[in-house]
Design a binder for these strands. Structure first.
Lengths: 247, 247
DNA sequence: CGTCAGCTTGACTCATCTCAACTAGGGTGG
DNA sequence: CCACCCTAGTTGAGATGAGTCAAGCTGACG
């Protein structure tokens, strides 16, 4: 089952956040879908020299908003939530990272959001200064980074539409369809959508409460649009969900 | 008064969207705050050769989502709204552009949003192909573009927090304080905030209805936090508004 | 076997929306 | 020059989608 597949490959108990391990870009499963695809074999070598393989446990913090941005990351396994907090604790999740996704596009001095592991995560970590120098040397890597940033910006604008103008039903449906598409690109199923994040995570991503998310998913299940399975949902009538998610 | 200042300088009745006019980058009032600040005098010359001075009337469409992206723009005067529409007509404004702001950061094939003039607008228009070539030749221009894109992304994430997790009062207060800061950088007043956009525009930016925006502003006025003036507001008690906008 | 985090469901509340009436300017044409 | 209209804004009264509070369920884990 697709859900279990994602948990495989985590090499043993070495889930320490700073485990040094030899990085193997050539054999990297997510290279084709990541920033690294911009590089040729020799450039990959210089990137590999910079990379440090790091692992994080479920719920472990990867970085905090406001901290000095001393590294950028490329997620290779697991799911990461990126979020911002208001002073009183209200949280808005601004995105989920899946394998192949890059964190730290801004190359700025301080992180603009916090990040932690939704489930066990593996990532390539690059010292910011070294990565930044590499970017300065390789304009096409910068171009790729810029493309990634503007793609992110476009997704952010789509998410604004969702947060500002869509109903709870539409929000949940849109979330499921978009997530299905992302898993599909990573070789996932078209009908079973893994949901490694909690209902609260989904709620904080969609601008809802966890109860509303739960009720909405239950309603979809009651009307036979989907089936709730452990750590995910299975779409029974994708057409109706897609209709709710339209545009 | 700051509000009238912004209307000045529009050269006469030539408000046709494609009026050719000699562009004068060296004497440009918004150069220091725009993308163009990345260029030296000689580079400015090659940019100037590409630039076309265009004007738009109030409410005039500048570009439409989905259209082939044949140009990028730098706004020099006026205010532009960027927005996305849902199939049933619901609208989310994803941003307002003020003088100095760049439109078309993505350098992509098709526009991701629509844009029209809130009030009379003047802009420098660059053919995308020519601009893209210039970017390829000048890595530091690309770097500047990337910085602008990641800054936009950061603002977009802040806006997600606002849309997903803030109350109507907080939304309006945050909008006013952020807009004041933007006008201030352009030499505007600290107490009078010009609001060239309608209540409906503000509502569609904040994920509210125009009635809620109007009521909220009236409430702020009733509690002596601000004074409603023609085409804007004057802050009487900035501290309390800032408190509502905190973080 | 008890505890606890995650999830579901119900009953009730409330912030915001909807519908509607009314006011104030600004522009236009008779 | 005034009457009309149209857009923008304000305000009220009532409706409602989503939130809040609370109880209970379930499976994982020590």
């Amino acid at each position: 089952m697709a859900i279990q597949q994602r948990a495989e490959g985590l090499d043993g108990p070495a889930a320490c956040p700073h485990a040094r391990a030899e990085t193997d870009c050539a054999g990297c499963k997510v290279r084709a879908v990541s920033i690294c695809a911009a590089l040729d074999a020799s450039e990959l070598g210089s990137l590999e020299a910079l990379a440090e393989d790091v692992h994080y446990d479920e719920k472990q913090t990867i970085l905090l908003q406001g901290d000095e941005a001393d590294a950028v990351y490329n997620v290779t396994q697991g799911t990461v939530r990126l979020y911002k907090l208001l002073p009183d604790g209200r949280r808005q999740i601004v995105g989920f990272l899946l394998p192949g996704d890059f964190m730290g596009l801004a190359l700025s001095d301080h992180y603009a959001f916090s990040a932690d592991a939704v489930e066990p995560v593996a990532a390539c970590r690059f010292a910011r200064s070294a990565f930044s120098s590499l970017v300065d040397e390789k304009p096409h890597l910068l171009r790729r980074l810029h493309e990634a940033a503007t793609h992110e910006l476009s997704l952010a604008q789509d998410h604004m539409v969702l947060l500002g103008r869509r109903t709870a039903d539409e929000k949940v449906a849109t979330f499921l369809i978009a997530l299905r598409e992302r898993w599909r690109r990573l070789g996932g199923s078209l009908v079973t959508i893994p949901l490694p994040m909690t209902r609260l995570d989904i709620a904080d991503y969609l601008g809802l409460t966890l109860e509303t998310v739960s009720r909405t998913i239950s309603k979809f299940a009651r009307s036979k649009m989907l089936l709730v399975v452990p750590d995910g949902v299975r779409l029974l009538d994708p057409t109706r969900i897609e209709a709710l998610a339209a545009d």
